[in-house]
Amino acid sequence: MDKMYRKYGITSIKAVEHLVLMIIAIATIVAIGQEIVHIFNAGEVALADLLLLFIYLEVLAMVSHYAESGKLPIRMPLYIAIVALARYLILDMKAMDDWRIASISFSTLILAATVIVIRWGQLKLPYPRPKEDN
């Protein structure tokens, strides 16, 4: 009986997980569409628009990867954060004081260093492969 509840519980959680992934994917596609409409209405493509589209693209790639493998690589959200900080810096640099610019730049460097450390750890200290059941 306990195994049955566990099985239904896991199945229910997986169903909710897939539902939320679909909602995230649909919301991201809608946001991409809204940004494209904004670009056409403005009559020009700004660097901020391109960076925002890259952020949306990375979110879609992350959802796709998670849906396929069931694993969320920590590097993908870090890439999104780096691009978001770069976009913020580019858009608002003129209105920022020197300390804010320095802190955002330093934060970006910390995120980039984190990506390098994680990648190094994946290459040099990989997880042991799980044993396959026969």
Rank of each mutant, 00 (worst) to 15 (best):
R75W: 04
T28C: 07
G121L: 03
I110H: 13
I74R: 04
E17M: 06
E132G: 07
A86V: 14
M62E: 00
L85M: 13
K14F: 04
L111M: 14
V59T: 02
V37M: 11
I55F: 06
L72N: 02
I55N: 09
L53H: 01
I32T: 08
I29G: 08
L111S: 12
T11K: 11
I55P: 04
L50V: 15
Y8E: 08
M1A: 09
Y127G: 09
N41D: 12
S64W: 10
V59W: 00
E17Y: 09
V45F: 10
Q34H: 06
I74M: 08
L72Q: 02
V20H: 00
I118V: 14
L123M: 14
D92P: 07
I23A: 14
D98I: 12
I110L: 15
A112N: 09
P73Q: 04
Y56F: 12
I101E: 11
S12P: 07
S105D: 13
T28I: 12
A81D: 05
L123Y: 14
V45T: 12
I104S: 12
A112H: 06
P73F: 08
Y8S: 07
M22G: 15
A84G: 13
M4C: 08
W99S: 11
L57S: 08
E68Q: 06
D97R: 15
K7M: 12
V20Y: 04
L89N: 08
A86R: 08
H18E: 14
A81V: 04
I90R: 14
M93S: 15
V16C: 07
W120K: 14
T114E: 10
A112P: 05
Y66A: 00
E44M: 12
M62I: 01
S69G: 05
Y88M: 13
R129F: 09
S64P: 02
K3D: 05
S105I: 13
A67H: 07
L57G: 11
A112C: 09
A27Y: 10
L53Q: 01
I116T: 12
A86Q: 08
Y66Q: 00
L53M: 01
R6T: 02
Y8Q: 10
M1K: 09
N41I: 08
A42W: 10
D97T: 13
R75C: 05
A67E: 06
W120M: 13
V37W: 06
L72I: 05
L72W: 04
H65Y: 10
I104T: 10
V63I: 07
Y79P: 00
A95L: 13
M22I: 14
K3E: 03
D49R: 00
Y66K: 00
A86P: 11
I55L: 01
S64R: 04
